[in-house]
């Protein structure tokens, strides 16, 4: 199956050079020069991953991410010349999965794509049957995480997770009860080395909490361990 990418970038040169390089690697690439075009392309084809520039003419990248996120679980990688703390956090909060700042080398983009396109916890889903579904929280209604089926449900309602959120929860669930440092989460979920930005983890944990926890500001399942990292408590 061909992986479909969307490159949303208003600089013609960068957009077409990226397209050529990624097509050489076997991806199917759709281009969009504006957020409006991007949303149209997204609705028409459906894509597996998006590369999104933040500064665009017309609607900006932040708004695009906010609108695209409810439509798709596909990973969004921000490619931007903006690298201020607020910009990056805002993009992640809006729903982006990772970011790469310009100037980047193509290999870096490819590495991000490969990491985010890995199927969620493929290795363990083979050994786990659907009956291995993990009950994360039995106190406040049964919160069930089924890696094999790729679902998270509270009672009968399914909670939608993006691919990246799903993989993050998967890694935490496999190590339930153990503290995972931000850097090890970065490595396992994002394939980021030691230079990686730990805010990516923090923002994703926040996003995950909004979906998992009944009271995200006082988490009882996804716990912050001060100075060390995060821990998933099953109860």
């Amino acid at each position: 199956m061909v992986t479909r990418l969307l490159v949303l970038e208003d600089d013609d040169g960068l957009r077409s050079s990226l397209r050529m390089v990624l097509e050489d690697d076997g991806y199917e690439v759709a281009e969009a020069a504006s957020a409006e075009d991007g949303l149209t392309a997204l609705g028409r084809h459906g894509v597996d991953l998006m590369l999104v520039d933040l500064m665009l003419g017309g609607m900006d990248g932040f708004s695009f991410i906010q609108r695209a996120r409810p439509q798709t679980e596909a990973p969004i990688v921000v490619i931007s010349a903006r690298d201020g703390v607020q910009d990056i956090v805002a993009a992640l909060e809006a729903g982006a999965d990772d970011y790469v700042t310009k100037p980047f080398v193509v290999d870096e983009i490819k590495a991000r794509l490969r990491a985010l396109l890995r199927r969620p916890s493929m290795g363990s889903s083979d050994t786990r049957g659907p009956e291995d579904a993990l009950v994360l929280d039995s106190v406040a209604g049964p919160l069930v995480f089924d890696q094999g089926a790729g679902t998270l449900t509270r009672g009968s309602a399914e909670i939608h997770l993006t691919h990246t959120e799903f993989r993050l929860l998967g890694v935490l669930a496999e190590n339930a009860g153990r503290v995972l440092s931000r850097s090890s989460l970065l490595e396992h979920v994002w394939d980021r080395g030691f230079f990686g930005d730990e805010r990516i983890v923090d923002v994703h944990v926040r996003r995950l909490r909004k979906k998992l926890e009944l009271e995200p500001s006082a988490p009882s399942t996804l716990i912050t361990v001060r100075g060390l990292g995060y821990r998933l408590d099953v109860r």
């Binding site: 040169g13 960068l14 050079s17 100037p103 980047f104 193509v106």
Partner: peptide, 20 residues
């Protein structure tokens, strides 16, 4: 440096095509 970021990225990306 901000203004140079996108052109430099385009250059490296295009050049990686030539390298191959």
């Amino acid at each position: 440096s901000h203004e140079l970021r996108t052109p430099v990225t385009t250059l490296t990306t295009s050049l990686s095509l030539l390298q191959r």
